[in-house]
Amino acid sequence: MATLIDNYEQQYAVLTADVTAKISRISALTGGDKRVFSQDVDRQLEEAQELLEQMELEVRGTSGSQRERLKSRVESHRAELNRLSQEFQLAKKPKEDVTDVSLDDNWDGGVTEDQRKRLLDTSERIDRTGRTLQNGYRLVLETEEIGSQVLKDLHDQRETIQRSRGRLRETDAELGRGSRLLSSMIFRSIQQRLILVAVAVILVIVGCIVIYYSFTSRS
């Protein structure tokens, strides 16, 4: 519950900060520009009012000391919104119509010391949230850079593997050709040996025949 209210407060703080910046510019504008800024601020004030209503609904769902603490925070936000609405109404008036009815420097708009402290605490939380978001964004950029480098390394490794695979296929083809050539050489060697053996056998047989006939003719 408190986390949801914190989220509403962060949205509210962003809205009111933008409204404050625009109000400071409206009084110096004229014509169409002033009308456009005024319409934009009207819309943002309505959004801020809706956020306060959402916060009040969430506060009703709490109890005990937490409810009182959250209620005080919402009341301080509402006092701040009322002050911004009054400043906006003054800023919308033509310069010649603006008199000394502007807010006095000592006007506190009904904001108590505790409410001011709550506003300061909320502002500090928003600053811390902003710094956390910046750190997170920087971390995302660093992670993206690391991821890009990893992808580049993987791409280079893939090319290296593909080149190695190509060389392996070429080596395998060369081994296949060498194996076939070696088999052919072994077959020819065996064939030649068989021929030599056959010739030797024939020569032995012929020699035996010659010797046989030579003995036969003498006898």
Score class of each variant (00 low, 15 high):
Leu194Gly: 13
Asp6Ser: 11
Cys208Pro: 00
Lys117Pro: 04
Arg180Lys: 09
Val210Asp: 01
Gln162Trp: 08
Arg125Met: 14
Leu45Thr: 07
Ile146Ala: 15
Arg73Thr: 06
Arg83Leu: 03
Ser179His: 01
Leu84His: 11
Gln11Cys: 00
Val140Ser: 13
Asp172Gly: 05
Ile146Asn: 13
Lys152Met: 00
Gln115Glu: 13
Tyr12Ser: 01
Lys152Ile: 00
Ser189Val: 04
Leu203Val: 15
Ser214Leu: 07
Arg125Val: 07
Val101Ala: 15
Glu174Cys: 05
Ala198Gly: 04
Ile205Glu: 08
Asn106Val: 09
Gly64Thr: 00
Gln162Phe: 09
Ser65Val: 11
Thr16Ile: 13
Lys22Phe: 09
Asp104Lys: 14
Arg60Ala: 10
Thr122Asp: 14
Thr3Pro: 04
Ile211His: 06
Val59Pro: 10
Lys22Gly: 03
Arg69Thr: 10
Asp33Thr: 12
Arg177Tyr: 06
Gly31Ser: 02
Asp108Pro: 01
Ala2Gly: 06
Ser27Phe: 02
Arg78His: 07
Glu46Lys: 15
Gln89Met: 08
Ala91Glu: 08
Leu139Phe: 04
Glu142Gly: 04
Val59Gly: 10
Ser27Lys: 04
Asn106Ser: 15
Glu144Gly: 04
Gln191Asp: 07
Glu124Leu: 13
Glu145Trp: 05
Leu15Asn: 04
Gln192Leu: 12
Ser164Asp: 15
Asp6Tyr: 08
Leu119Glu: 04
Gln191Val: 02
Phe215Met: 10
Arg158Trp: 10
Leu120Pro: 03
Gln10Asn: 05
Asp100Phe: 14
Arg158Lys: 13
Leu90Met: 07
Leu194Ser: 11
Glu96Asp: 09
Tyr213Thr: 08
Phe37Met: 11
Tyr213Pro: 00
Glu170Tyr: 11
Gly61Ala: 12
Glu75Pro: 03
Tyr212Asp: 02
Gln54Ala: 10
Leu57Cys: 06
Arg138Ala: 14
Ala198Met: 02
Gly130Leu: 07
Asp127Trp: 02
Gly32Phe: 05
Val41Met: 06
Arg188Pro: 01
Val74Trp: 09
Leu168Cys: 02
Asp6His: 07
Val41Gly: 04
Val199Pro: 01
Gly130Met: 04
Leu119Trp: 03
Ala198Ser: 08
Thr216Gly: 03
Ser189Trp: 04
Arg128Gln: 02
Leu120Val: 14
Asp156Met: 13
Asp18Ala: 00
Ile126Glu: 10
His77Thr: 01
Ala2Tyr: 10
Asp121Leu: 15
Thr216Asn: 07
Cys208Ala: 10
Arg180Pro: 02
Arg128Trp: 00
Glu50Arg: 05
Leu194Lys: 09
Thr30Asp: 11
Lys71Val: 00
